[in-house]
Design a binder for these strands. Structure first.
Lengths: 352, 352
DNA sequence: CAACAACATAAAAGCGCTTTCATAAAATCT
DNA sequence: AGATTTTATGAAAGCGCTTTTATGTTGTTG
């Protein structure tokens, strides 16, 4: 058989039916009894559905308060066929941009009275059993954590999904929310060219398949073209949106005396890698090389010198994605969106 | 009445019963039918409980696979009176130490086949309705996000809780897991004194009530005492475990020419604040002042110069706390623990 | 003041599982 | 072989809610 979570196999489970000591439960029946009404009426006031007279509602609410009644979600979910839960699927709980994202999502779910279930993709089978169709009303999915195949399976099953930082495969109208990348990348690189007089600007890619990375590269090329600077393949390297990787790339370049006077690092993480490579080579930022990133994450403001980057409203993205998902769940039409971003100039590209 | 989450008030909810289009559900009955057994038997193989012959189990598992059956947790929860869900209560989804913590917790819950519900405290009533007694089997609680009062209410209700980075009020044996603070703080400060020859070492406190902060201060004093350096109140300031606050404190000190040659910043966040204050005053780290932090968070390795700090096994704490909570839920005896930490010497306290 | 709508409540039927409880077959022991 | 015990399965009773249906009770209209 499909291996069951070991949890279920614990003997203690059958021997020791959970928390025998837990306080006695207050149920809807208790409330109904105290208020002198039927449980249907209690349910109606709980859900503000159907007709309830003011007087009765008051009685019921009094009883609820007196008994400290909290409806049990499992019963509610079972009866109403909704879980009141949103699932968040992320690739890894490591990158710092996850935090504001989580914050945005958590706020929005809380405001809607929904629960947030978090899952990181490692074991896909298990993840889907946990967050999948029966145990969440919808899913928020970030880039790189679910294959197109799995995504389409859910799509065909009409399961509500909103993508973040990622667009669906061509031809499928799965709602998504992404940040504007190309234009702001171009603006960023133009800044280096126009304002800072740089000409040999390197670019560090993320993963091939990554939507963001690709858009940023297009923006980079746009800016070069616009200012009549020929695109030079040797100035493009792999940064992997990762500090260590980026650092390694730059160090290799420096060793073989590749000439460049600025680096557009793909994202802030990678930019930090560039900082370290520069530092160990004794190069000064921004004087010897300028460095710019993308995301405006936790690090950008904290690094010394502070990092010029593109501000991405990540918390906003989380919030909006959540609202979109809620609408989707409620059967409303949802429009995908691209949120604007903004170049933030800091010290790492400062002409002194 | 108690304000209901606005979600419930949406008209769409009654009008449009969630996802009318969702694929038809596969239930335990379907599995039973296909396998030619009763649902009790299916349930037994799902839970590996009771007696089931190998042959029957195989038939059932085949059917489960064929139908892609996933048991619906709400039904399961309702029937079995457990939610299979752990709640995580954090104060704010902002501090970087949350990420490794979340990672540790998520891994452990996943390994146990449990779900993880995340809640940030903002609206306590709502939080407890969401994560509280009926909707999670237990709670993981970090420092500063629940009042002692609320904590004790749950304690008296025998609701399983594990505290992280925090000890329970005196006399209550609520299991906790904390990191060793005092000894390593002392070791850290001793390092500055012995290895680096510093004598005027400042300390930046966190919040008064914070357990960690208090312990770290004790360690700081221990080290001073040990090396015969008198404690100087003027060298202790408020850092708030926050970059901006710490920066401000240091800048104020520098303006009034307070003399110090090293700062023990309370935590890494605050240390970054010190970096910025030093930088804007034109002071070099570590030559003019050395800076050390605590936590070894995301920033420590990334700052330039890299930050000497105390490594706290945060992911480990998350993992262990989760295991403790699971044991607790299963009625086992759980022992609180203090995890060891370790001084990590990096460039910010480097004698050049 | 009938006749009909709008409002208010209760009874009852599930939701999809787990968990007794009852029963039967197979294995083990006198 | 008969008496137990162990193993194996199914029937049925809920878990605590929501929701449909039925039944009043008001209020309103012609």
């Amino acid at each position: 058989m499909e291996a069951l979570p070991e949890f279920y196999m614990r003997e203690s489970m059958t021997e020791n039916p959970v928390n025998p000591l837990r306080e006695q439960k207050v149920t809807i029946d208790d409330v109904a009894m105290l208020a002198g009404v039927s449980i249907s009426t209690v349910s109606r006031v709980l859900n503000t559905s159907g007709y309830v007279s003011k007087k009765t509602a008051d009685k019921v609410n009094d009883a609820i308060r007196k008994l400290k009644f909290v409806p049990q979600s499992s019963a509610r979910n079972l009866a109403s066929n909704r879980t009141n839960t949103l699932g968040l699927v992320v690739h890894e709980l490591a990158a710092p941009f996850i935090l504001p994202l989580l914050r945005g999502i958590e706020n929005a779910t809380r405001d809607s009275g929904l629960n947030l279930l978090v899952g990181a993709t490692m074991d896909k089978r298990r993840l889907m059993a946990t967050l999948g169709e029966h145990n969440a009303d919808g899913l928020l999915v970030t880039a790189g954590c679910i294959t197109d195949e799995e995504l389409l399976r859910l799509y065909y099953a009409k399961f509500p999904i909103v993508l973040m930082f990622r667009k669906p495969p061509d031809g499928f109208d799965i709602p998504y929310i992404v940040a504007e990348n190309r234009q702001s990348s171009s603006a960023m690189v133009s800044h280096l060219i126009k304002d800072c007089g740089r000409r040999r600007i390197a670019f560090l890619r993320g993963l091939e398949a990554d939507y963001d990375s690709h858009q940023r590269e297009l923006g980079y090329r746009d800016a070069l073209a616009e200012h009549g600077i020929p695109f030079d393949e040797s100035l493009v390297g792999y940064g992997g949106f990762d500090e260590a990787v980026a650092r390694n790339t730059i160090e290799t370049w420096l060793e073989k005396d590749l000439a460049f006077d600025a680096v557009f690092a793909g994202d802030d993480e990678a930019a930090v890698g560039v900082y370290h490579a520069a530092e160990s080579a004794g190069l000064s930022i921004p004087d010897d090389i300028m460095v710019v990133g993308f995301d405006d994450d936790y690090l950008a403001r904290r690094m010394i010198p502070s990092l010029t980057t593109v501000h991405v409203p990540i918390e906003e993205i989380g919030k909006n994605a959540t609202c979109m998902l809620i609408d989707l769940i409620n059967g409303k039409y949802v429009e995908s969106m691209t949120l604007p971003t903004e170049v933030v100039i800091r010290r790492s590209s400062c002409i002194s």
